[in-house]
Amino acid sequence: MSGHHIIPMKFLLGTAGALFVLTALTVAVHYIHIPAPFNIIVAIGIAVLKASLVAMFFMGLFWDKKINTIALMLSVVFFVLMVGVTMLDTMFRDKPFGIYDKAPAPPATTSAAP
């Protein structure tokens, strides 16, 4: 019985309220049409903020044993690793570094037959 944190009502209602407001904000930002990379940055930023609120106050990590937070953070780290390593491949398929070629490698996609 000891140590079980009962989340105060004001935190639960406040978290839900903040999530509703941030949802409205992310939709509003969508209709404003912020120019290209910043629209994604703002959308993801708001989503990360909302996710943090859910994890801290609905899932109780704010009051919980730190080992549970560490577990969640590890999943984020390994997700970023999965994205990063995959994109090291997929983003550079058409642009070989040519470190093993004597001459600069010709573009792989164009086949200019005489």
């Binding site: 549970n68 997700f79 999965m82």
Partner: peptide, 21 residues
């Protein structure tokens, strides 16, 4: 029990993570 559930949620994050990739 709670830590066990969190470890399951880690696998869930990476499960959806593959689709996000």
């Amino acid at each position: 029990a709670k830590l066990g559930m969190w470890l399951f949620l880690v696998t869930e994050v990476l499960f959806f993570g593959g689709l996000f990739v």
